[in-house]
């Protein structure tokens, strides 16, 4: 029987988590065990970010991801940039250690929700919107967020100034093509005195991130979202400035009150999974939805204020009928 082991992350950025996940998936055939991603405290192998404190080591095997440009002499460290070969070598070493120390297959550590088996979500195709979203996300995460020039076919350039979290579009965002071939991106390095191509005040970057995020995955999870993980809302988007539906509002309210996976949110709100994932793609891109790392929410089957729930639920229903939402 093929054993199952788990990988967790400690202070590892989303980009590297996605990278590890996709590498593990590509390398599955070369490994003798099945490797899943798990809640960090329970994982067999915990990958630590470059700045994570060593005292927080909690896995059976703890490895450290080197920072950009860092040279490490520790063979346990994963060098930067992360290569498939290095990850594969580490996982094989772990498999051998675990067999030697335990000698038997280990049961899977991710507990599936009791109500339903876990749903496997396909990843999104690399559309223009997805590439734009990823580029913005990586640039925002970099030390020096700069300027991005977006060229769409024969249109004038759309400029994004990440320093000011603003953009200027010479056309309506709905007119932006979504296929990868139609969009060309240029990242422009900036110094402190580089003038902004975005006239003051410009349009809030959130408007663009919302637009791009909703379209980036076309119903499938963007690379910056793991729909199996639970997410919790940091704060509400400014809906008075964003084109939205009543479903978006419902989903945002749910993520604001409890940490949910995509499937949980779909069930809770009675909304199709594609809409849930599109909304998660957008909210995560905007930095409003966070993985609920380290905190588990106890599932309760009973509602806490049933009278209030039915009263407000009925009221919302009648608002929907009245205003044709």
């Amino acid at each position: 029987m093929r054993p199952t082991y788990t990988i967790g992350f400690l202070e590892v950025d989303s980009y590297h988590q996605v990278l590890v996940r996709s590498m593990v998936s590509r390398a599955a055939a070369s490994l003798s065990a099945t490797w899943d991603i798990a809640e960090t405290p329970k994982a067999d192998v915990v990958i630590h970010g470059p700045r994570a404190a060593a005292k927080n080591a909690s896995g059976r095997l703890n490895v450290r991801l080197c920072g950009q440009g860092e040279i490490s002499n520790n063979p346990q460290d994963l060098p930067a940039p992360l290569r498939l070969s290095a990850l594969l070598e580490m996982l094989k070493r772990a498999e051998a250690d675990f067999v030697n120390t335990v000698g038997v297959s280990k049961a899977p550590q991710i507990q599936a929700a009791p109500q339903a088996p876990p749903v496997i979500h396909e990843t999104a195709a690399r559309t223009g919107m997805l590439i734009l979203g990823e580029t913005i996300l990586k640039s925002l995460a970099s030390q020096k967020p700069g300027i991005i020039k977006v060229l769409c076919r024969d249109r004038e350039a759309l400029w994004i100034d990440l320093r000011r979290r603003a953009f200027a579009a010479p056309y309506a965002l709905n007119e932006m093509p979504e296929d990868a071939d139609a969009i060309r991106l240029e990242i422009i390095a900036v110094s402190a005195d580089t003038a902004s191509p975005v006239p003051t005040p410009g349009t809030s970057l959130d408007r663009l991130l919302w637009h791009v995020g909703l379209r980036a995955g076309a119903g499938k999870p963007a690379p910056w979202v793991n729909p199996a993980k639970r997410y919790k809302l940091k704060y509400w988007p400014n809906f008075s400035e964003l084109p939205h539906s009543i479903t978006h509002m419902n989903l945002v309210a749910r993520f604001g009150s409890e940490a949910l996976t995509a499937d949980d949110a779909s069930l809770r709100c009675g909304v199709d999974i594609a809409t849930v994932i599109n909304t998660m793609n957008a909210l995560t891109l905007m930095g409003l939805l966070n993985e609920n790392n380290g905190v588990e929410i106890r599932r309760l089957q009973t509602v806490t204020q049933p009278e209030q729930v039915s009263r407000v639920g009925g009221l919302i229903g009648r608002f929907k009928s009245k205003f044709g939402w």
């Binding site: 309210a253 806490t304 209030q308 729930v309």
Partner: peptide, 11 residues
Amino acid sequence: LFNIQAQSEAP
């Protein structure tokens, strides 16, 4: 309204 509903249903 949505916020009240979600808060009152939250575990």
